[in-house]
């Protein structure tokens, strides 16, 4: 019987494949990789592309498309942590900026709230003064 290794392909949102395989091809960051059982431990990034898994029977070949991710190889097991979307530093950067901007906008709104509070306090003060004045006038009028 041919030697097999356990292959897991998972993404953050779901499990894509799990089972034994005799061979696996993946698009590594430094070039395509063909992995057979008892490979040396290896950790690499993978590029968007197709992952081919040759299952135990040997005839069957499963082709999966991944949009990048990480690949971990242990002698008896291979794990592919697939990304759900293509990653690029500038896209991440833009998303981060956006999240920051939203927060800043919120904080700016908060400032408006404070201004509102200050304004209402001033208003209350002014009203109190007016009341005092009118009371004084009444007294004087009497």
């Amino acid at each position: 019987m041919a030697m097999t290794m356990h292959v897991d392909v998972v993404s953050a949102e779901e499990e894509i494949f799990a089972g034994p395989a005799t061979m696996l091809f993946a698009p590594g960051a430094m070039g395509d990789l063909g992995i057979m059982p008892r490979h040396a431990p290896l950790l690499t990034r993978i590029k968007p592309g197709e992952v081919r898994i040759v299952t135990e029977q040997g005839e069957e070949e499963i082709v999966l498309y991944v949009s990048g991710g990480m690949l971990e190889i242990q002698p008896e097991a291979v794990t592919i942590l697939a990304d759900t979307a293509q990653r690029a530093d500038d896209i991440d950067e833009a998303a981060a900026l956006e999240a920051k901007e939203r927060a800043e906008k919120l904080l700016a709104d908060q400032k408006d709230d404070i201004d509102y509070a200050a304004a209402s306090a001033e208003l209350a003060e002014a009203m109190a003064q007016l009341q005092a004045i009118s009371r004084l006038r009444k007294k004087v009028g009497r």
């Binding site: 759900t84 991440d92 998303a95 999240a99 939203r102 908060q110």
Partner: peptide, 26 residues
């Protein structure tokens, strides 16, 4: 009055991990 550095909302019932990258990256 906390110091909010990033914010994400309205992810809906089926949140996508992509929508959270920004906040996490901050």
């Amino acid at each position: 009055g906390s110091n909010i550095t990033a914010e994400t909302s309205h992810l809906g019932d089926a949140p996508r991990i992509n929508d959270m990258f920004g906040t996490i990256k901050v």
